[in-house]
Design a protein around this nucleic acid. Structure first.
Length: 513
RNA sequence: GAUCUUGUAGCUCAGCCGGUAGAGCAUUUGACUUUUAAUCAAAGGGUCUCGGGUUCGAAUCCCGACAAGAUCACCA
């Protein structure tokens, strides 16, 4: 990608050349040993004023820090810079005579530092911490090293004493396309990704403590099973066969339960070739885990335990601000059957209605229906339209109609329903779990029902997976499994309304050359 | 996929009813040895997203394309 160089880029390239002509390597190979970080110095530096008026500096007196120049303030033969490392920014103070002496040349400060260094350059500093006249904890530079020259001007975001931000780098397109710039100049967005990482590491720790095993299952699958969605299709040249990027990993994880593992989990990327908007990216991360000898009641309790711990790990509290609402992840959560939820928010008991009666109820609420919709789909529409918008606090919706859940075990006591729950938070689904169907004959019939739905025109119906059925025929213990959308969970835990804000590199259309 | 909005300097933005392109920061030159949105003085920087059209004349009005955002529909 070549582009027309701007004035500032030309100047920086010329500076680069001049630096080389000075005999200074702008991209030195040698490591620079860092011994301190900005945040620690600012948090822990201590000094006292002695009786004779001199300062006694107690710590950080022989340190090396490294980072990017984020601001330069020249003051004659001295200079201040703000240096940003991974922990934040700290001010440094340079005196010309000192850095010249350290470098062993007269032109180091006046020429290299003042003329050829720019905002964005990486530098290494050796020196000692002190407080300036105005009380700012800073690093007094004794030796200064250029570590990497920057050739493009970084957006300059300034903040005044009241915390007002000026010239913020805010264009969402630029922020997503050049995330490296966004994360450099907008520290508030770094925080989201730190929290995302914490969500995943907290969960992983819980699972490992419980003795479950982290596994990896195929992303390239010959049959795209386990969910209802349009896949990405690709082709393997040597095998000369079509392959699909997985839309789910459920059927593989269950094969591992068949294989005799008690508990398996996978944090995995899923790929769905569907619309994109502020809650959908073509690739997204799901956590799934499957635990033998458990049922969906146990899974609800376990989900409460996990989310409670995650919320505390991320925000220090089970209560999380999401938009205008405060959501409390402290369990136990409300449990409502899907029919109960519909009745609660419409006043109508639809639990014994047939397809035609349901279609009538949908029409009554001005919900669009068509001939391809089976009973399950109609109930789902009704629920989505009338009940879902009310589910702000974490709520388990349970006991879905069998038509909607081809991989779920039939309910132990309620005819026509399955042992499934979905967890709703802030009116959005964040988890989907079952008592897993392990009756191979029933499972085959469910797949056959799906085939009939497909023939009727339902393009989301699930495909038959003979190998999965074969594994069930060998026998799978009673098992409960769950899938949790990590991106959406992160959106909630960080109070973001767009999925792009919780993905480092959201999918974008090709940039114009 | 539909509708609406946006696209001007490296960044953030003005630019009215069509009349030779503006500001702040950044950049360049100079001054300044504790500044902090540093300050002071001066200077340079533009294919106004792209392509058409209307017009004597278009950043501005019209049409189309591209990209992004918001809302809606579908999916997680």
């Amino acid at each position: 990608m070549s582009h027309h160089l701007s004035e500032q880029e030309i100047v920086r390239r010329e500076s680069l050349q001049k630096i080389r002509e000075m005999g200074i390597d702008p991209y030195p190979a040698a490591m620079f040993e860092v011994t301190a970080h900005a945040a620690d110095i600012k948090a822990q530096y201590e000094e006292e004023i002695l009786e004779d008026g001199t300062k006694n500096r107690k710590n950080f007196q022989d340190i090396a820090i490294a980072g990017r120049i984020m601001a330069q303030r020249e003051a004659g033969k001295a200079m201040f810079m703000n240096i940003q490392d991974s922990t934040g920014q700290i001010q440094i103070y340079l005196r010309g005579e000192e850095v010249n002496a350290a470098a062993g040349r007269d032109d180091f400060f006046a020429v290299l530092v003042k003329k050829y260094l720019d905002i964005g350059d990486f530098v290494g500093i050796k020196g000692y911490a002190f407080k300036t006249k105005t009380g700012e904890i800073s690093v007094h530079v004794k030796a200064f090293t250029l570590l990497s020259k920057s050739l493009r001007p970084l957006p300059i975001v300034k903040k005044d004493a009241e915390g007002n931000v000026y010239d913020a780098f805010t264009d969402p397109e630029l922020r997503y396309r050049q995330r490296y710039v966004d994360l450099t100049v907008n520290p508030q967005y770094r925080e989201i990704f730190v929290k995302r990482s914490k969500i995943i590491s907290t969960m992983r720790r819980i699972f490992d403590d419980k003795g479950w095993m982290e596994v990896e299952t195929p992303i390239l699958q010959p049959i795209h099973g386990g969910a209802a969605a349009r896949p990405f299709k690709t082709h393997h040249n040597t095998l000369d066969m079509p392959l699909y990027l997985r839309i789910a990993n459920e059927l593989y994880l269950k094969r591992l339960i068949v294989a005799g593992f008690d508990g398996v989990y996978e944090f995995g990327k899923m790929f769905r070739n569907e619309g994109m908007d502020r809650t959908h990216n073509p690739e997204f991360t799901a956590l799934e885990f499957y635990i033998a000898y458990k049922d969906y009641n146990w899974m609800m309790t376990t989900t409460e335990e996990i989310l409670e711990k995650v919320a505390i790990a991320v925000n220090g509290d089970t209560k999380v601000q999401i938009g205008e609402n405060v959501v409390d992840f402290k369990g136990p959560y409300e449990r409502l059957s899907i029919f109960g939820a519909i009745e609660k928010y419409t006043g109508i008991d639809v639990s014994n209605m047939d397809e035609e009666a349901l279609r009538g109820v949908c029409r009554q609420f001005h919900i669009e229906v068509d001939a391809t919709m089976g009973k399950g789909k109609l109930i789902d529409e009704l629920f989505g339209e009338k009940a879902e918008p009310n589910l702000i606090q974490p709520t388990f919706i349970t006991d879905y109609p069998v038509e909607m859940s081809p991989l779920t075990k039939k309910h132990r006591s309620k005819e026509g329903l399955v042992e499934r729950f979905e967890l709703f938070v802030n009116c959005k689904e964040v988890a989907n779990a079952y008592s897993e169907l392990n009756d191979p004959i029933d499972q085959r019939e469910r797949f056959e029902d799906q085939l009939r739905l497909a023939e009727r025109g339902d393009d989301e119906a699930m495909a038959m997976d003979e190998d999965f059925l074969r594994s069930l025929e060998y026998g799978m213990p009673p098992t409960s499994g769950i899938g949790i959308g990590i991106d959406r969970l992160t959106m909630m835990m960080t109070n973001q309304t767009s999925i792009q804000e919780v993905l480092f590199f959201p999918q974008m259309k090709a940039e114009k050359a």
